[in-house]
């Protein structure tokens, strides 16, 4: 039971990080990142390859993965950053599909479809194998805490207000003398950094990565978390991501109880549910269940 809980918790934490990253980019910044799984994959592969191919210390590899993913996110967003946000959606999606192709075919660098195996976890030498999962979960939860605190600070900071303002009306932000381009670039890069972190943790947790692990389904789940949790609300997305993974992971057990239900059927049913729920929520509860931090506090003089 305990090992199972730790395993589920690890998945939850990694997934929550992806949800929080999307909440920063789309929820607060209005930047639709359909290619989320590509940046996540990039983070996982950079981290995994640095450890396996070049024997780097896992923590150093993770730091490099975070920085590189952030930088590449910024570059990708530059392609369409001068245009309306709709273009970013297809650019990120295209980038993600290309990354997946590149990783699948360039065996000399990425081991192709064979995958990268033997990715050692941080502190592997310090803890014995039986405590390895526990050590990992402690690392992952601390990472989640750090990210959450940083995001809360960003959300409350003047930059967070700027992001929300850019999302709601870029023209006004521009006319007030702020550079919309820089705000979008910075929020996309910060989101990319978190995705790099989530990807690295994915690589450490499984110890083995191959291209089939990274599909648009990751993007779909992240969008689901943000829509349920409420766009722009960090606590909402945190909670939603936890609940969602427990429900979706838990639905695996249905196979044992419902006769005639196999894994493939269940997988498609689950995705039909996710797609439908996404649409229904956007229609009937577009603000989600969480609440975005109000820009003007109740009782302040600005309120009218």
């Amino acid at each position: 039971m305990i090992p199972y809980l730790i395993a589920t918790l690890s998945v939850v934490v990694i997934f929550t990080l992806a949800g929080l990253a999307l909440n920063l980019q789309w929820g607060m910044g209005g930047l639709v990142n359909f290619g989320l799984f590509g940046f996540y994959m990039l983070g996982a592969y950079i981290c995994g390859l640095l450890v396996v191919r070049w024997g780097l210390n896992p923590l150093v590899a993770m730091t490099l993965a975070i920085l590189t993913t952030a930088a590449i996110s910024a570059l990708v967003s530059l392609i369409s950053i001068r245009l309306s946000e709709d273009y970013l959606a297809i650019v990120t999606l295209g980038f993600a599909e290309c990354i997946r192709l590149f990783i699948s075919y360039e065996d000399w660098l990425t081991f192709g479809t064979l995958g990268v195996s033997g990715i050692t976890r941080p502190f592997a030498g310090l803890v014995s194998a039986q405590w390895s999962d526990l050590a990992f979960i402690i690392l992952a939860i601390s990472a989640l805490c750090v990210v959450y605190v940083v995001l809360s600070l960003v959300s409350a900071s003047p930059f967070g207000r700027l992001m929300r303002a850019t999302r709601d009306d870029p023209d006004i932000v521009g006319s007030l003398g702020r550079s919309v381009l820089t705000i979008r670039l910075r929020s996309f890069a910060l989101g990319g950094a978190i995705l790099g972190l989530a990807g690295s943790l994915h690589a450490f947790y499984y110890g083995y990565i191959d291209p089939t692990q990274f599909t648009p389904i990751i993007t779909a789940y992240a969008f689901m978390a943000v829509v349920v949790g409420g766009r722009g609300s960090n606590p909402g997305v945190l909670l939603a991501a936890f609940v969602l993974v427990f429900v979706l992971e838990g639905s695996r057990f249905l196979v044992d109880y419902v006769p005639g239900l196999d894994g493939a059927t269940l997988a498609s049913l689950r995705l039909i549910a996710v797609g439908t729920a996404l649409v229904v929520l956007l229609i009937i509860k577009p603000a989600g269940f969480g609440r975005e931090r109000p820009t003007v506090r109740a009782g302040s003089d600005l309120k009218n």
Binding site: V32, A267, I272, V274, G275, T276, L278, L282, I283
Partner: peptide, 13 residues
Amino acid sequence: LVASMGVAIALEN
């Protein structure tokens, strides 16, 4: 945009 992605996922599955 996001809603149409939801439609796409549901239909494909």
